[in-house]
Amino acid sequence: MNQDEKLSIIKDILLTDEREFTSSIEKKIKSLEKTINEKEKLSNKVDPIIDDKLNNFIKEIPKTLGPTITKTLKEEIKNSQDAVVEALFPIIGKMIKRYIQHEMKLLSDKINTQVNNTFSFKGIFRKAKSKASGVNESDLILQELSNTKIEQVIIIEKGSGIVLAEFSKNKTTDEDMVAGMLTAIKSFVEDAFKKESQNLQHIDYDLYHIHLQNFSSFYIAVVISGAYNIIYQDKLEDKILDFTSKQKVSDILNNKELITQKLEDFFNNDNI
């Protein structure tokens, strides 16, 4: 082997490896190129990693960021209480209101079914009124919500429930039936609470409030529509006391015509 031959062999060996090496690198670069260039292929590989990291991060938030967030919130709330209250009030207020409304409804349903089951009083007022005026019941309900009015005043004999005198602005109910029912309810309730001194003073029926005021041999029932509160009740009580004492009602109980006239003179307005 001469020099040249030897050299050629070495060259061969060396160059073959180099060529192979080069082509392998070339392949790798091409595939890298491919991977980088094709976004999808890249994200396929990267997404799972990011997802993983992100999941971990979220899991760790309470530990890592939690205290900071809470602290910030606390400070925010402290520094701007009014704003927070304002923001929360409608939500909490509504929740509480709804809860109370619900409870009240349950309670009033219970009372109503009890009263309806016990006494056939059903819609006696509004139905009669609706019939008489030709206005439908739901319109009446809305109308009735607006202002306080004395609808009817009945002087009723205790025990028998017989009407001694009556005054009403629009003759819509049968006072004899109302007086009978009221007396029955009154007896029932007062019996249930046994104590003789205990008197039923007030019945709510549908949108009517029936104010009851006791005297020795009779009681006076005032049917009121609209808002009825303690202040009104108080004034009404005084007005009735005024009426009975000034007009000496106890002395004229047997004179239906005379009491009726006096009742009308006294109650024919909504002033109390």
């Binding site: 016990t118 006494f119 039936m177 007086a179 029955a184």
Partner: peptide
């Protein structure tokens, strides 16, 4: 019947003389 029911009927027993029954 549960509790009380009240009904009413008026009958004439003579001229200008009526009785209103409030019936419990």
């Amino acid at each position: 019947t549960i509790g009380v029911h009240i009904s009413k009927k008026t009958i004439e027993i003579a001229e200008d003389e009526s009785v209103s029954f409030i019936i419990w």
